[in-house]
């Protein structure tokens, strides 16, 4: 079973973002929550965007996007999930690693 990574920091904590990206293996999934969703906008120049381009499965928590007013700024290719989708991701992956 592959790993689920959960990231809650924007690229202003670039070390955490980079460490999370570095720890992703082939087939792993990444979920961006809380301030982590800022990495999915074009303005952050985040390594998450490169990770997405390399074919990684990256999910974004819709509640956090809406709360931050980012609906129109999210780059294409990220998969939005609600919390029930998050639960499904947890069921489908093990272990689960939180980067914060």
């Amino acid at each position: 079973m592959s790993t689920l990574h959960i990231l809650n920091k924007s690229n202003s904590d670039a070390t955490t973002v980079q460490s999370c990206c570095n720890a992703m293996g082939k087939g792993d999934a990444l979920l961006l929550i809380e301030d982590g969703v800022y990495n999915a906008t074009g303005s952050q120049n985040s390594s998450i965007v490169e990770k997405l381009a390399s074919g990684a499965n990256i999910y974004i928590r819709v509640q956090d996007i809406k709360a931050r007013g980012l609906e129109t700024q999210i780059l294409s290719g990220f998969t939005p999930v609600d919390d029930s989708g998050w639960v499904d991701l947890c069921v489908a992956h093990q272990p689960i690693v939180s980067w914060y």
Binding site: N8, E34, D35, Q63, D83, V87, V91
Partner: peptide, 26 residues
């Protein structure tokens, strides 16, 4: 849950996630 209310979003995120876990029948 490692984060405190008003210093981090962790409590609210965890609470919503917990509700969804239970709703899904887990």
């Amino acid at each position: 849950v490692y984060g405190a209310p008003y210093s981090s979003q962790a409590p609210h995120t965890a609470y919503n996630f917990a509700c969804s876990v239970l709703q899904a029948g887990h």
